[in-house]
Design a binder for these strands. Structure first.
Length: 826
RNA sequence: GCCGGAGUGGUGAAAUUGGUAGACACGCUGGAUUCAAAAUCCAGUGGCUUCACGGCCGUGCCGGUUCGACUCCGGCCUCCGGUACCA
């Protein structure tokens, strides 16, 4: 009786088995080598989408493969559970965000389980739980002690719809990363973490990350934006003050013809006090949008302040201008302008009739400074004592001069700015600070942690309901005991996701943020998998946080490493009709529907087969059917064995065995094992691995086993197939393995070994090329010499016809591959 | 502008890293099975050309190295991602 492949039955059965035997738990006491495989944990929106499915299937394939290779695998999951969507849903449904969040977690946990993902559910965490965020609060108070967390009034990015400030990293092209609304610049007192103190280490340690994609390394390097140059203090006429600037081209210092300051620069503000025209210009500049499109097309405009600066070397008077292209937020908000050697300054100078003074000339040839700025390095001229120096030497010489004369020196500038971590939101971890009129901002002492977020409040869309919650708000100062106020802002949710990878190593630890021994066992993460959209957000913060934790003494470099993620795989997006799936476009595919219709194994197999992991995946319903068809075909291969009612005697119970066919079959089997293993070890090319498994299934299908040896080869092939399918389609693999009588479940069986002897061939097929073009092939003894191969080629009529009337000039034999004959007319 | 990635059939993609270009799959065409369909199986499927055997062309473009190039080198083009009046 043939039985159809029924995914639903099989999957329910094996999921139950796995849960009962608890096979996916990571052991903290184990002789096997540890392996930590982590996927970026989800925000519990309530619905799994295909991007999640892809992410988690990739991670699961890696985790399962490593388990079969004998590793003690840590493969955890949890919930990035704080955040704005919960508040929005709360407003809509008039229920507290906590309720919505926990209900969603419930729902999504079910969906993940239905996919048959091999998580260690004992380690599940939700970041909105006080047991989790208390440690974040604890670390923050340590950072306050060290001065690494501080409060300051600053111009910040404000998103009105989200009713909160945003970190620089959360402003994308001038708009809010979450809701696409242009951000407004506001002056507010906010909490920051001094990530700039770690800029150099964050930059240098990128070199350690050899298992990361170049792209992400480049993006982070870009974001940190280190530039080296000099700081120069220009004197100011009739003033004790100086005008400080940063430049990467100190060699051009003698070519400065004007200074440019930002509209927000104190000097500009000061000058505007008695200059209404200038004041109007400053006002105009302050109102320009930060949107990139505007910036690009924005006209370069400026206005003189009437103030003169004094050149530190020449003592010349240099006019100070306000220019709309100088940014207050970068460097000192002021620049020296050298129109001869900077294209932007050149254009500005021409527009306003400012002088242009050439101080660098090309080391070879001429340059017409009237046409364009000369921006390359060269040799100094018109620079007094520095004349004749190369740009490189001059940089050093001038910087040294500045340093010796106390008006500047070497300086490194970063683009990276401190991380703004406070948010005017309710559904987040409370910032553990108490404001006292006498003592100022006081860190909440350890014994009062966690500062628990009241979970029963109802957000309204305006200010955070914490502001109205007296029970939360009013508190005594821990230092002086007088009445004080709690900090009402909460943490940026990236604070939670920045350290969860370490918490998983000891998720129930009630004594410490992490356990150093557990870190030693598991950290850093061996393989991290997630979307590339976090290249400079989460992945930068997490690297930073890991170092903060290390420096807080929670673990040493030796125990936890200096970097949290050894290898990173950034998976591509899941597209439909060429566009990212989204509700608004109406091009989503519901994973539940796919699982219900075809089963989890089909969904898993398709998402891994349809594209290499790092590339975008175009969803294709027909392709899903193809994946399902493949499983059905393997299923029938098994049925073929059963239909004889005897797995021992063989399918075709004939006496004679076709030895050559059996040999070929076994070679296919072991070549496949080699191929699939290689795919796992090099770049996770699962699409290729699955293709190889399909090929093996095809050749098993074409194989007509005869006799005991044939039958044994057939079974060997099916067993290898079952084992190698386990990382991709684990339920199916277990069922096939079980029916084949495998002693262990396929998902915990040993990864199949290549039998080298099965790969050996006595005879091989050699491709014969004439002038590098394939003209035929010959079957020849493996050990054949070049002369023997040549003789065989010449004996082949199809090949000989190309050799007739030709003289052989050269023969190249690539053993096991090809024979190339180079000829010329005789 | 700078940094990174990509460009291969009708489609998603392979190519053991310099050695048979297009594996595997989707789609399509034809056939078998069926009363019919679904499912399944078999065959074909880069282009041009040939009755056929076969031949020629073909991995974004131009050139180079090599017995041999999707792969290496030089010069471009296009697309995607990141980033920037960054001083």
């Amino acid at each position: 009786m043939s039985e159809r492949y029924s995914a639903q039955q099989i999957e329910a059965k094996w999921q139950q088995q796995w849960e009962q035997t608890d096979i996916d738990a990571a052991s903290d006491d184990d002789a096997r080598p540890p392996y930590y495989c982590l996927v970026m944990f989800p925000y519990p929106s309530g619905n799994l989408h295909m991007g999640h499915v892809r992410n988690y299937c990739l991670g699961d394939a890696v985790a399962r493969y490593k388990r079969m290779q004998g590793f003690n695998v840590l493969h955890p999951i949890g919930w990035d559970a704080f955040g704005l969507p919960a508040e929005n849903a709360a407003i809509k449904h008039h229920r507290p965000p906590a309720e919505w969040t926990y209900a969603n977690i419930e729902q999504m946990r079910g969906q993940l389980k239905r996919l048959g993902l091999s998580y260690d559910w004992h380690r599940e965490i939700a970041t909105c739980h006080p047991d989790y965020y208390r440690w974040e609060q604890w670390l923050f108070t340590r950072l306050m002690q060290k001065g690494l967390a501080y409060q300051k009034e600053a111009e910040v990015n404000w998103c009105d719809p989200c009713h909160t400030v945003l970190a620089n990293e959360q402003v994308v092209d001038g708009v809010c990363w979450r809701c696409d609304t242009p951000v407004i610049r506001k002056n507010l007192k906010q909490w920051f973490i001094r990530i700039t103190d770690y800029a150099e280490e964050l930059l240098n340690d990128l070199d350690q990350l050899t298992g990361w994609p170049e792209k992400v390394i480049g993006m982070q390097r870009n974001w940190i934006g280190k530039s080296s140059g000099a700081e120069v203090a220009f004197g100011l006429e009739d003033s004790e003050q100086t005008l400080d600037i940063f430049t990467t081209r100190p060699d051009t210092l003698m070519g400065v013809t004007y200074m440019a300051v930002a509209a927000g620069h104190p000097l500009a503000v000061q000058a505007a006090e008695h200059n209404p025209e200038l004041a109007a210009f400053l006002d105009e500049c302050s109102r320009i949008s930060t949107k990139e499109a505007d910036v690009e097309t924005m006209e370069k405009r400026g206005m003189p302040t009437g103030i003169n600066a004094i050149h530190p070397i020449s003592g010349e008077q240099i006019p100070v201008w306000v220019a709309n292209f100088v940014l207050m937020g970068y460097g000192t908000g002021a620049v020296m302008s050298v129109p001869a050697h900077d294209q932007r300054d050149f254009e500005f100078a021409n527009k306003y009739g400012l002088p242009i003074k050439q101080v660098i000339q090309p080391s070879e040839g001429d340059w017409d400074i009237a046409t364009a700025a000369f921006t390359d390095a060269g040799v100094l001229i018109n620079s007094e004592q520095f004349d004749g120096l190369t740009s490189n030497d001059a940089k050093q010489a001038i910087t040294r001069w500045l340093s010796n004369h106390n008006c500047g020196g070497e300086r490194i500038q970063y683009r990276l700015r401190d991380w703004l971590v406070s948010r005017q939101r309710y559904w987040g971890a409370p910032i553990p600070v108490i404001h006292c009129d006498d003592c100022g901002a006081v860190a909440v002492p350890d014994e009062q942690l966690p500062v628990e977020l009241p979970t029963d409040l109802q957000p309204t869309g305006g200010a955070s309901p914490l502001c109205e919650c007296d029970a939360f708000k009013h508190v005594d100062c821990p230092q002086c005991g007088r009445a004080a106020r709690r900090e009402l802002d909460t943490f940026d949710t990236f604070m939670e996701s920045s350290w969860y990878m370490n918490r998983y190593t000891s998720p129930r630890d009630s004594e410490a943020m992490v356990d150093a021994e557990a870190m030693q066992r598991w950290a850093p993460v061996d393989q991290y998998i997630g979307g590339v959209e976090h290249a400079v957000l989460h992945l930068l913060y997490a690297r930073f946080y890991h170092k903060l934790m290390r420096d807080a003494g929670l673990f040493s470099s030796e125990q936890g490493g200096d970097e949290p993620f050894k290898n990173l795989l950034t998976q591509g997006m899941v597209l439909k009709d060429g566009a990212k799936m989204s509700k608004s476009k109406g091009n989503t595919v519901d994973p539940n529907a796919i699982i219900e219709h075809f089963g989890a194994d089909t969904a898993r197999l398709f998402t891994l087969f349809a594209a290499p992991p790092d590339r975008d995946l175009e969803w294709n319903d027909a392709g899903v059917e193809g994946a399902h068809r493949f499983l059905s075909r393997v299923w029938r291969l098994l049925q073929r064995l059963d239909s004889e009612g005897n797995s021992e005697g063989g399918i075709n119970n004939s006496d004679k065995t076709d030895a050559a066919a059996v040999k070929a079959m076994r070679r296919d089997i072991h070549a496949t094992i080699r191929k699939v293993t290689h795919a796992f070890e090099h770049g996770f090319a699962f699409n290729v691995a699955i293709a190889a498994l399909m090929e093996l299934a095809n050749s098993l299908q074409a194989f007509r086993p005869t006799g005991a040896a044939g039958n044994a080869a057939y079974r060997e092939g099916l067993q290898a197939l079952a084992a190698m399918l386990a990382p991709f389609a684990p339920h199916f693999a277990c069922e096939i393995g079980d029916r084949l009588g495998m002693k262990q479940m396929a998902v915990v069986s040993d990864w199949p070994q290549v039998d080298e002897s099965a790969l050996e061939q006595d005879e091989i097929t050699l491709v014969v090329q004439i002038q590098g073009k394939k003209r035929g092939d010959i079957t020849i003894a493996k050990t054949a010499s070049q002369d023997e191969a040549m003789a065989a080629a010449q004996a082949d009529p199809a090949i000989r016809k190309w050799l007739d009337g030709m003289q052989v000039v050269k023969v190249i034999l690539v053993p096991g591959r090809l024979l190339n004959i180079v000829v010329k007319p005789a």
